[in-house]
């Protein structure tokens, strides 16, 4: 199984520099080799969910953290909004 590292990187919003490309390709091939055994997993039918998650009540919660506190972590902000480079290309 050959993993197209550059294509996967693009999907992941990552770039792999040329000098590391070969190393990453080898790593990913080795990992893919380790995962091959999963092809032996057959169909398995189980009754209901094996690990059930309890659903909470569908109620609106108020955020306990103020907008100013949240904005303090922003790399760039303007009047309570996050600033980013242009999004229309």
């Amino acid at each position: 199984m050959i993993i197209d590292v550059q294509k996967t990187a693009k999907l992941s919003k990552l770039t792999i520099p040329q000098e590391k490309a070969e190393y990453f390709e080898k790593c990913m091939q080795d990992i893919a080799q380790m995962l091959q055994v999963l092809s032996e997993v057959g169909e398995y039918h189980c009754d209901g969910d094996s690990r059930r998650v309890e659903m909470r009540e569908d109620e609106v919660c108020t955020c306990e953290i103020s907008r100013d506190e949240i904005m303090r972590s922003a790399p760039s902000s303007f009047k309570g909004t996050f600033c980013v480079p242009k999004t229309v290309e």
Binding site: K13, L14, I16, P17, A74, P75, F82, V84, P85, E89
Partner: peptide, 22 residues
Amino acid sequence: VRYGFRADGISGINELYTKTRS
């Protein structure tokens, strides 16, 4: 965008994501 590291020299949104994450 909202917190953490942001790369420098960004000209567009895709470059923001990719350079920052890389």
